[in-house]
Design a protein around this nucleic acid. Structure first.
Lengths: 209, 209
DNA sequence: GAATTTGAACTGACTGGTCAGTGCAAAAAC
DNA sequence: GTTTTTGCACTGACCAGTCAGTTCAAATTC
């Protein structure tokens, strides 16, 4: 009979409160950082009693860790989807990279606070959720690396390229450009930003005389 | 007879303790974040009493702000020097960009903790030192933008490029690649990393078939 | 050149406040 | 009638910032 649960993951009501808590936590932590954000603030912004936070999550750090997992899961899925879509449509690996750049921009456009918070935590050492972060980072970067590797194997990219470093650099390019976009020129359109990054990717800035 | 001070900037002893405090603070804050790092920890690692911190800096945030200013000052000077050197040696703007990439890598190689901490704070809003951070960021990015602008004016780069976005993207490329290098593949050489990024800059990954 | 003074630099115990996490009885939702 | 949420008082640890007192090297005096 499965009692009162929705299809997959537990009761709907509970899921809704958890979602509210995620949303409250993500913006507050993006603004202030993890330690500077209090559980009382999170509860207040979510419109929920403090006790409810602890009814739903074992601790403040657990809430944060699940938030990270949840967010990066969305990003990874989106990147993977973009790569697969171009493959289905018969595009080359350059098109796949370009589509992933766009997917990254769309993600950041939609979840700027999450991105901000993720970047702020990624290279920290000595934190409780460091291992979670590493796992989850690898999932996302692996998608980009996969496309690069396939491109090299298929002769579309030079054999000289360093897959993992290039993947990091591409991620960095999109990440920083997008965060600056959102922070300092939020009025610009996504297409505009995408065009600028495409141009850079294809070496039309400094190569290809 | 000018009493007990050394030539220019206040007593030497004081300057030495401030330096020790900077060094202690930068690593601790890079590891744990600003709020999670206590003044007691900073004092202990610097081998100094807590009171000394407050004798030398008005508050924890002021210490941090001065640290930021100090660090970004070093970076900006280094980028500017790289650009000027290539100009003196008759290199083009592509060479200047390449030299700045190297200068960025050298800086991050030398001050990884500072870089880490800077990235973690850069896109936060609502923090006391936000305005300091903006000013200081602009100084560094402006150097890259200047080279791009000159390159466009001199016909070396396409007129289509978006200067400020491209500058952000380039900074991001170097930043993320270097942080990943230091965090996950620290055994690699700087030349190696530099070569990979040069290749990407010159479009030899996906453009220029 | 020994004795004394000066003051910048430093010390560390202490204070007042903040915050994660708890406990629980009653209400609401399902 | 079970699950979830509420409201709120409470605890104990932790921490930024303070301040009365100490140190010591250079300057001054004798």
């Amino acid at each position: 009979m499965e009692s009162s649960s929705a299809a997959s993951g537990g009761s709907t009501r509970r899921e809704a409160t958890r979602q509210k808590l995620y949303e409250a936590a993500v913006t507050l932590i993006a603004e202030q950082g993890f330690s500077a954000t209090t559980v009382d603030e999170i509860a207040e912004r979510a419109g929920v009693a403090k006790g409810t936070v602890y009814y739903n999550f074992a601790s403040k750090s657990v809430l944060f860790e699940e938030l990270l997992r949840h967010g990066v899961g969305l990003l990874t899925a989106s990147l993977r989807e973009a790569a697969e879509r171009t493959a289905r449509e018969g595009g080359g690996k350059v098109d796949a990279l370009d589509a992933m750049i766009r997917a990254g921009l769309v993600f950041i456009d939609r979840y700027p606070a999450f991105t901000q918070l993720y970047v702020a935590e990624l290279w920290r050492t000595n934190r409780a959720w460091q291992s979670t972060l590493m796992v989850v980072r690898q999932q996302a970067v692996a998608v980009v690396e996969g496309v690069l590797r396939d491109g090299v194997a298929g002769g579309e990219f030079s054999e000289e390229i360093d897959v993992s470093l290039t993947a990091s650099a591409l991620v960095g390019m999109v990440l920083v450009a997008a965060l600056d976009w959102k922070s300092f020129q939020p009025e610009r359109s996504l297409d505009d930003v995408h065009a600028a990054l495409s141009r850079l990717l294809q070496g039309r800035v400094s190569g290809c005389r």
